[in-house]
């Protein structure tokens, strides 16, 4: 098995910038840089993680433990201050569905725009268009502007585009709460199907009942450090005890 994701000793410091105006920055410089213009904290601290192809990994931890930040480093949205991240094959993020949607465009335009944002080519979208519509259950509303969609329809279409991007590595962040229950089941079935096909999955979720259904391996993060890495039941059990 080849490595799909290799994270080596990455650290990321966040700056809590107090100011966003030149004036304040200048005043601070003129005063001889007295006091701290900004506070820093470690969002990730010396994190290493290797994921093999076909593995499904859950990133677990409380709010602010660095799960989403780690996911953003794997997707390339952020780059680490130190250490390296390397991935193999195309990585697609189901990170907050509908991030690339525009309210004033029709469902059809949004499928193309969002598909292209997630890295699909024109031919790929044309080819998968019918399948995307079918999965989303949008039907005749596809030529309506998405601002008139119900929130469920909106999420279903966005999720449907995302699962049709067909990458090697899938990053999933808190999006399993999509739509009503039947659709949610359909989404989970789809994600399991992807895992069964040998796609690599990295999932962030707070739904501790759902996670063991999808993932085999769990990684527990606390204050930006990996504190436990093992079979998912064990890690979920540890998190529940905390």
């Amino acid at each position: 098995m080849a490595t799909a994701i290799e994270v080596r000793n990455i650290s990321k410091q966040f700056v809590l910038r107090h100011t966003r105006s030149l004036k304040e920055a200048l005043v601070w410089l003129l005063k001889g840089r007295r006091g701290d213009l900004s506070q820093k904290f470690f969002a990730l601290h010396d994190v290493s993680l290797t994921v093999e192809q076909g593995e499904s990994v859950a990133l677990l931890g409380f709010n602010g433990s660095g799960k989403s930040t780690l996911l953003k480093h794997i997707s390339g949205v952020m780059t680490p201050d130190s250490g390296t991240v390397r991935t193999r094959g195309r990585v697609a993020g189901l990170i907050e569905v509908g991030a690339g949607f525009h309210h004033d465009l029709t469902g059809r335009d949004n499928v193309y725009l969002n598909g292209a944002i997630l890295g699909m080519s024109e031919e790929q979208i044309n080819e998968r268009f019918d399948s995307i519509i079918e999965f989303s259950e949008i039907g005749e509303f596809i030529d309506t502007e998405v601002k008139f969609y119900s929130s469920g329809m909106y999420l279903r279409l966005a999720f449907s585009v995302a699962v049709h991007t067909d990458p090697e590595v899938f990053l999933v962040d808190e999006i399993l709460a999509v739509g009503d229950e039947p659709f949610q089941r359909k989404c989970i079935a789809k994600i399991k199907e992807l895992a069964a096909e040998g796609k690599t999955l990295v999932v962030v979720s707070h739904d501790l009942d759902l996670i063991p259904q999808i993932c085999e391996r769990g990684v527990l993060l606390e204050k930006g450090r990996v504190v436990l890495d093992g079979p998912v039941e064990e890690v979920v059990g540890e998190l529940r005890r905390r």
Binding site: E6, H73, I74, G76, R86, T87, R88
Partner: peptide, 8 residues
């Protein structure tokens, strides 16, 4: 495919 650094 090779391992590549994402986001560059």
């Amino acid at each position: 495919e090779q391992l590549v650094r994402p986001g560059v």
